[in-house]
Write a protein that binds this DNA or RNA. Structure first.
Length: 431
RNA sequence: GUGACAGUAGCUCAGCGGUAGAGCCCCGGGUUGUGGUCCCGGUUGUCGUGGGUUCAAAUCCCAUCUGUCACCCCA
């Protein structure tokens, strides 16, 4: 018979990975923290389908862009419908918002979600085709206090996760369409005048995506981008005030921020406040964004609803996990007080199995390896599992209704009557 | 989508035309029923996949897939 190992089929699963138990402990921490943070701020959970009509994202992202044409995970179903694996949360959530009449809910409507997102990209570290994000959105309020509040949610979340140390809040405003259009004209003009000094990519961006030039990392471009007109300085009066107020609210809750005019959102539906919380390395350089978001007052309208002001952020879970793993020294201190059950011989195994069952709801952290025969092999596993105590039952103990209680640290042991064992174990563990 | 490099045991890797290897992990044992150290033994591979060159390919060539890095892009 030919043994053929089943492995991930090629092509279709490029950029997909398995998340193993070792990493899951950090995911658990996020899964546990998220609802608590949500509750503290009054956010309710929503889950939307992984699949949406391709049209939804085409409309929100804008047709003809790289995002739609080469980076969206799209396919055609048996029923010949064009669908896309969701590339982001916001569009799906706004769709759900409109479809479920949430604009009639008491405002503000605060919802959060967490789950996989997909992009059809060439994978590299930290950029998988399936990745995961958590997401917070507030609908129905255009007050700048809400802008500050959503940033506070992000900062609070990171704090609860224990990764405040090397983070920084970056904030900017990209204004509204009215301030942006003339600004982009001005910007393009400026870059055209300095075109010779720009790097090759930026010359390209000049036509396609002039805003991106602003955060080009090429040394050659830096002096030019530094002196480029800033969107922040071209805001209309209303947007300017909104930004000022947002900043002052941040100060009220002691959030330190840095204004970063190079913050750009790739999508048109964003307006006014944009922000990121970035992780920094030991030297203080920005490594990558842990979360990022912004205001999108126009998105609901794009999807055929009425105008609904909204703001939110998303956060890449893989990156948070990376951060958590780096702080891991602190995490793993807690050593579990484990109790290991050993049974051997036919009768001993039976009684040990029974003891295991009896202790299940006692709150004791139990382990066993009763599938092994020898007492030696079982104690070996007990040692590997760092058990504090071992409860041993062989033929003799089974008949006498007793249990050997062995202290794995000292190596001492005593014989305890079966009906006193729970009490004795608890007593020993308290020490 | 473009370019560079890589893929050999569960993991880290050596071998680079002539019988497929090491360390770690895993499993078992070191006489009656006791772990950590030590000692002994064992399992594991279509050498990523397909084709070609050759008497002979893990080794050379081509294609392909996957990964890593950089670019494009970054919701």
């Amino acid at each position: 018979m030919i043994k053929k190992r089943f492995s991930k089929p090629p092509l279709a699963l490029r950029g997909m990975r398995d998340i193993l138990p070792k990493e899951q402990i950090y995911w658990d921490k996020i899964r546990k923290t998220l609802p608590k943070v949500a509750k503290d701020f009054g956010f309710k959970r929503i889950d939307t389908p992984l699949l949406e009509q391709m049209e939804l994202f085409k409309r929100t992202v804008g047709e003809g862009t790289d995002i739609v044409e080469k980076e969206m995970y799209t396919f055609i179903t048996k029923g010949k419908e064009k669908v896309a694996l969701r590339p982001e949360f916001t569009a799906s959530i706004v769709r759900a918002f409109l479809e479920n009449g949430m604009d009639r809910w008491p405002k503000p409507v605060k919802i959060y979600s967490m789950g996989p997102l997909f992009r059809y990209e060439r994978p590299q570290e930290g950029r998988y085709r399936q990745h995961h994000q958590l997401d917070f959105e507030i609908f129905g309020r255009k007050d700048p206090l809400v802008d500050a509040q959503i940033i506070l949610v992000g900062a609070y979340l990171l704090k609860k996760l224990g990764i405040t140390k090397r983070t920084k809040i970056l904030i900017s405003s990209i204004g509204c369409l009215e301030c942006r259009k003339p600004y982009i004209k001005k910007l393009v003009e400026y870059f055209k005048n300095h075109k010779s000094g720009l790097c090759k990519d930026c010359k390209n961006r000049l036509k396609k995506n002039p805003l991106r030039i602003l955060d080009c990392k090429e040394a050659a471009c830096e002096p030019i981008t530094n002196k480029a007109p800033k969107l922040i300085d071209s805001l209309c009066q209303e947007c300017h005030n909104h930004f000022k107020k947002t900043l002052s609210y941040l100060e009220e809750v002691n959030l330190k921020y840095e204004i970063d005019p190079s913050l750009v959102r790739g999508l048109d539906y964003y307006n006014r406040t944009v922000f990121e919380i970035v992780a920094r390395d030991k030297e203080g350089n920005n490594k990558y964004a842990l979360l990022g978001g912004g205001r999108y007052d126009g998105l609901a309208e794009i999807l055929g609803g009425k105008q609904i002001p909204a703001i939110g952020f998303g956060s890449g879970i893989e990156r948070i996990v990376t951060e958590l793993m780096q702080n891991q020294k602190k995490e793993k201190v807690k050593e579990k007080k484990r109790v290991f059950i050993v049974g051997f011989g036919e009768l001993g195994k039976k009684k040990a199995f029974q003891l295991f069952n009896d202790l299940l709801s006692s709150g004791i952290n139990l382990r066993e390896s009763l599938g092994r025969d020898s007492i030696k092999a079982q104690l070996k596993v007990a040692d590997k599992e760092k058990a504090r105590l071992a409860l041993i039952i062989g033929q003799k103990e089974a008949l006498d209704e007793t249990v050997i209680l062995r202290d794995m640290q000292i190596g001492s042991q005593e014989i305890i009557p079966r009906d006193k064992i729970l009490k004795q174990v608890k007593k020993m563990l308290r020490k």
